[in-house]
């Protein structure tokens, strides 16, 4: 399940969730329900846009751990069509970022997508 989700990022720049008992549409999917352990159901494509539900601003990134050397923010993003939030980062226009901000996925270039959650390079604020 994780492998197919990542293949969607890498090959199609599309984000897929999975309908899961007790959790709704889970993004990113793990293939089962974390609440009751039942198998994941249908794939549901979600939008690359969504709303920020939590923000942690990192002013001093930790080398070899954090994804970039400049200040950035970790965010939880509830993508449009999803019922759970995805953990990711926002790198630009941090002054506009707050809980409730609308953001959209910024894709890594074709040659730099290797089948990882970081095939989404980051999210950017759109409103």
């Amino acid at each position: 399940m994780i492998g197919r989700f990542l293949a969607g990022l890498k090959e199609d720049k599309r984000i897929w969730g999975q309908r899961v008992a007790g959790q709704g549409v889970v993004v990113p999917p793990v293939g089962y329900s974390e609440t009751d352990g039942s198998a994941g159901g249908d794939w549901v494509e979600v939008k690359p846009t969504g709303v920020v539900t939590a923000v942690a601003r990192v002013h001093r990134p930790i080398p070899h751990l954090h994804p970039c050397a400049e200040p950035f923010a970790f965010v939880l993003v509830k993508l449009d069509g999803a019922d759970t939030a995805l953990a990711h980062v926002v790198r630009d226009h941090l002054e506009q970022l707050r809980i409730g901000s609308r953001v959209e996925a910024v894709w890594a270039p074709d040659a730099e997508r290797h089948g990882s959650i970081r095939d989404i390079a980051c999210f950017r604020v759109i409103s």
Partner: peptide
């Protein structure tokens, strides 16, 4: 994505 415990605690606090 490099989450560390201080950052996750900050997400929760926010």
């Amino acid at each position: 994505i490099g989450l560390d415990p201080t950052s996750t605690a900050a997400l929760q606090a926010s």
